[in-house]
């Protein structure tokens, strides 16, 4: 996540001090990514050093001693951010992906159990996001106000959903690979499962 770009974007609206910047950032993103004030402060110092922000000397600091405003290059950088896509070339390191990649090849690991445990956890998270959504007035469809927060929640819902789909896919492919590895004649347990699935389907 780019704290630097986010702070520049917030400063497009008006000059702000570090406390106001932190408050705005967290309010708009629903507190999903809390910032500590030191992080905001060092980032602003770096932006000032790079000539992207400057101190605003209007003395109207709302609780903040000093407020910062965008310089011309700073304004260009902030506007440029909206216009350029977020790079997706190199995926971020994801513990779950790494864990399952290692589990697939590891001896003595029950991949279905690993997947199921994760499925329950992801489902629990999805339920919690949904409860937060359920608490929104008018189902989060009210324009303005909490739209930003509502959209952040939607993102978490979509991500959890995608993860559930991927887990189903991992399980199905790992099961198939395991079935292929069973020598002929010892495949009766797998065949029995297929029978049972077919029987359940035919009763519908």
């Amino acid at each position: 996540m780019s704290v630097k770009q986010s702070l520049l974007a917030l400063l497009i609206e008006e000059p702000m001090g570090v406390y106001a910047l932190r408050k705005e950032f967290e309010a708009r993103t629903g507190g999903t990514w809390p910032l500590n004030i030191g992080q905001v402060y060092t980032t602003i110092q770096r932006l000032e050093r790079d000539g992207l922000v400057e101190r605003a000397d209007d003395g109207d600091g709302d609780g903040d001693v000093e407020r910062f405003a965008l310089t011309e290059p700073g304004r260009a950088a902030a506007q440029g951010w909206w216009l350029s896509p977020v790079r997706r070339g190199a995926p971020e390191r994801d513990e779950l992906v790494i864990k399952l990649a290692l589990a697939v090849g590891a001896p003595g690991v029950d991949i279905r159990a690993v997947v199921q445990r994760q499925r329950s956890e992801t489902m629990r998270a999805l339920r919690d996001f949904t409860r937060l959504k359920a608490g929104e007035p008018d189902g989060g469809t009210r324009p303005g106000g909490d739209l930003a927060w509502s959209l952040v929640l939607d993102h978490h819902v979509f991500s959890a959903e995608a993860e559930m789909r991927w887990l189903d896919h991992v399980e199905a492919r790992a099961s198939r690979a395991a079935a292929d590895a069973i020598p002929a004649g010892r495949a009766d347990s797998a065949a029995g499962r297929a029978d049972s699935a077919a029987a359940t389907r035919s009763r519908r």
Binding site: E26, A27, G30, G31, T32, P34, R112, Q116, R117, R119, S120, M123, R124, A125, R127, D128, R131, L132, G135, E136, P137, D146, W149, R193, S196, A197, T200
Partner: peptide
């Protein structure tokens, strides 16, 4: 949510209260 596989109930999400997974959030 309870999960079924081959007729067996394999797992269930705990019926707990949502933890404060979004720090300082909740209906904002």
């Amino acid at each position: 949510t309870v999960f079924l596989r081959d007729g067996v109930l394999v797992d269930s999400t705990a019926d707990d209260q949502p933890e404060a997974l979004l720090a300082g959030s909740g209906p904002r």
